[in-house]
Design a protein around this nucleic acid. Structure first.
Lengths: 184, 184
DNA sequence: GTCTATAAGTAGATAGAC
DNA sequence: GTCTATCTACTTATAGAC
């Protein structure tokens, strides 16, 4: 069951929902058809479990970077510049390209919640930066939070298009250049 | 032939390469199998023609916004705030989620070229802004160009995840807030 | 719980008539 | 140029044995 979920996460990441067949999942998990259909009602149920797991992983990784000491800009820059397998893309953001995920409330919900959480968490960090005097009062935390999240997701898109992580890194550095600086 | 290409563009936009079958294309174009295979060697050839067309459309639309009078910031803001069907996403960026597109040089090339062109064009506008004194000398055109393109692509991702165009608009406004202002 | 058998439907293409 | 027939493989399950 554990292997089924992990294999589904990996396949959804690589090939998306439409491109992932139950058979491929079984092969990757080294499990039979009977086993899969015993634990999960079908492809959608299994995908739901996998997406929820991926969302939890993304939140945990982001929270680790955004919580702790350091200025708001330093924490945001740390999050932006963290080691990533850029050409693989984002395992959660990737699913927004899947029409069957977007159309099914059960599958879209964990994706929506993950990015809602991320934007809220980033907005908190920006708000802290305003309170500490690091950022001007005019800065809108919700806007900046969305911009930061978008640069990452869009950076993946540009990198995969180019076949190189360079555009991702340019986009991230460009955003860091634009953010008001504390000590940086 | 024209209808085949247009229908393929539409289906690639909605469902991606993996999610689009020759049969679905024929149905949408109201063409028979024989007709499709007479004009194109197969699914990949047809997709190539459709992607090239979509890339040309994206370039034309962006160029129209970025060329002309107005400060660099005004033109960039105009491009960012242009009317878009946000929840549909980007017809070219969307394809970066398709493993079969990324893996096939013939299919990835038009996607890569489109975004290379876009980043170069945006960098030119930023460079013009520097020359006119609108932007400080420290600003890196290539970085800012990548950031602008990434905010759009990432904005689509966030919007589709949320089922609302709001995060897209927040991300765009956040970026405009961060860009050095001329008259704005 | 896991396995194998079976099945209706689709994917992607080829063949040959018209 | 376009049509219909045909084909192999894969998709997404269900059924029932073990």
């Amino acid at each position: 069951m554990e292997r089924l979920i992990r294999s589904t996460q990996e396949l959804l990441w690589e090939r998306g929902y439409v491109g992932t067949s139950p058979k491929a999942i079984q092969r990757a998990a080294d499990a039979g058809q009977g086993s899969m259909y015993h634990h999960f009602a079908g492809k959608a149920e299994l995908a739901k479990a996998a997406i929820e797991r991926s969302g939890a992983e993304l939140r945990a990784a982001a929270d680790a970077q955004l919580t702790g000491e350091g200025s708001a800009s330093a924490r945001i820059a740390g999050y932006l510049e963290r080691e990533r397998d850029v050409l693989k893309g984002c395992q959660v953001g990737r699913l927004t390209a899947d029409p069957d995920v977007i159309a099914d409330p059960m599958l879209r919900a964990p994706v929506a919640e993950t990015f809602e959480w991320l934007r809220k968490r980033l907005a908190e960090v920006v708000a802290e930066g305003k309170r500490s005097g690091e950022y001007p009062d005019s800065l809108d935390p919700q806007r900046i939070a969305a911009t930061v999240a978008a640069v990452l997701q869009g950076g993946y898109v540009l990198a995969r298009a180019a076949g190189s992580s360079e555009p991702f890194e340019l986009a991230v550095q460009g955003l860091i250049d634009l953010l008001p600086e504390a000590t940086k």
